[in-house]
Simulated scan of single mutants.
Amino acid sequence: MSSLKPYDAVLLLSFGGPEAPDEVMPFLENVTRGRGIPRERLEEVEVHYQHFGGRSPINDENRLLLANLREQLDLAGVGDVPVYWGNRNWAPFTTDVLREAHEAGARRVLTVVTSAYPSYSGCRQYREDLAEALITLSREGRSLRIDKIRHYFDQDGFLQPIADSVAAALQSLPDGSRVVFVTHSIPDVMDDASGPLGNAYTQTHREACAAVAERVGTVPEWDLVYCSRSGPPSQPWLEPDIGDHLAELKAKGVPGVVVVPIGFVSDHMEVVFDLDTEAEEIAQGLDLPFVRAATSGRAPAFAASLARLVVERAAAERGENPQRPSEAGAGAWHDVCPATCCTNLRNPDKPAACGVDWVLPIDKSAEASAAPVGEAAR
């Protein structure tokens, strides 16, 4: 029988997405608030969502992942610990869910973020939202401590389902077809600041790609490319873009492609629109055979890996020395983020929970506890 002590709740924390046409623009405004994105750009992106009836697939994917994670925690012997689901940008919102957990008796929560890689948008921004929620709840007299599991791009349950899908896709394509791994583009400067030493976003993606290729075995050449760029043309973002790369491969005589959304846990809008719609249309126009590999989020093995990391972190917090398996890169990532990890380039002093430097700010205008919450400095 495993234990999750000292944790008394688990939070599955994700990005969120609209589920009806009239929710799309308010959702996009939440996502981009404070970033000066022109209204015209939001309207362009809104069309992507309306292409699918105004409903993003992400919430349904998270409902399934939530059920799978609960099942795997039960199989691990810790099914009595409640598992909550919250989002950064749409209901159920993080603060509301943590308030619900507190009212149910939770005082220490372990978070599972649906982003496998280090970067500002994939890690620190979630930590900032957790800090904001903790500050809000503290002003209400509610004290919570929150930690998060380590990055899981290197876990078997993330890598193997992708490798299985790639191997199956290659069977349907001509010999010599290329494997094209795809992830969300980010500004070059964000990659430069990712991880404690920089460039961790691209480095860990390449490590995951190499691990998948090795598992496939006789995999042909592979590339790592990007999708969903949204910044101004004057700002350098990670390249090449998937559409441009498909044209280059066709010009080189590549007979087919397996497009692999390695950067996404599940079928987000970037997958179903940027890849399944736009990229596939480009491939069809080029007469380039195209198969999109599956994401790993629906696989029971993926939820099993997350459950193992939850149990691992709890054991570490109890002072035990759990095994920390890693199937890609140089070894397991840190549990607690260093102060210099994935810097917020716009506001480097913004509080972020689950880091070595996190303590709850003292609110002198409210009767809030000054005791550290979240991941206290060690």
Rank of each mutant, 00 (worst) to 15 (best):
N30F: 06
P26R: 09
G77Q: 01
R178C: 14
D287L: 09
W237T: 12
T95F: 01
L246A: 12
Q155T: 12
S119Y: 11
S228V: 07
R215F: 04
V212G: 08
D267E: 12
D80I: 02
N347F: 09
L159T: 04
A328F: 10
Q50Y: 00
A101I: 12
V189A: 08
R378C: 00
S365N: 11
M25S: 08
P118R: 03
C354A: 08
V10C: 04
R178S: 10
D191H: 08
H48M: 15
N87R: 11
E327Y: 12
V373R: 10
G105D: 04
V225C: 02
L98Y: 03
V310P: 01
T183H: 07
T295D: 04
C227A: 04
V78F: 01
A353C: 15
G331F: 06
L130S: 01
W333A: 13
R346P: 06
N199T: 09
E23G: 09
N87P: 00
L288K: 12
Y201R: 00
H48F: 11
D22H: 15
R308F: 00
S121K: 08
G157I: 06
G141R: 11
M1H: 03
E367I: 06
R139P: 01
F290T: 09
R378Y: 00
K250Y: 00
D244W: 00
F273I: 14
P348A: 08
G198E: 12
V310E: 05
L110Y: 03
L249E: 07
Q125M: 15
R313C: 07
R99A: 00
V265S: 01
C354W: 04
A131W: 10
I58M: 03
T136M: 07
E100H: 03
L130C: 03
D287S: 14
A91T: 10
H102T: 04
G217I: 14
P118A: 10
E23F: 01
T111N: 13
M25N: 05
G36S: 08
L66T: 01
V78Y: 14
F290K: 09
L66Q: 02
W237Y: 13
S172P: 13
Y117M: 12
V272A: 09
R35P: 00
K364I: 04
E29K: 13
F93G: 03
L144Q: 01
L11M: 15
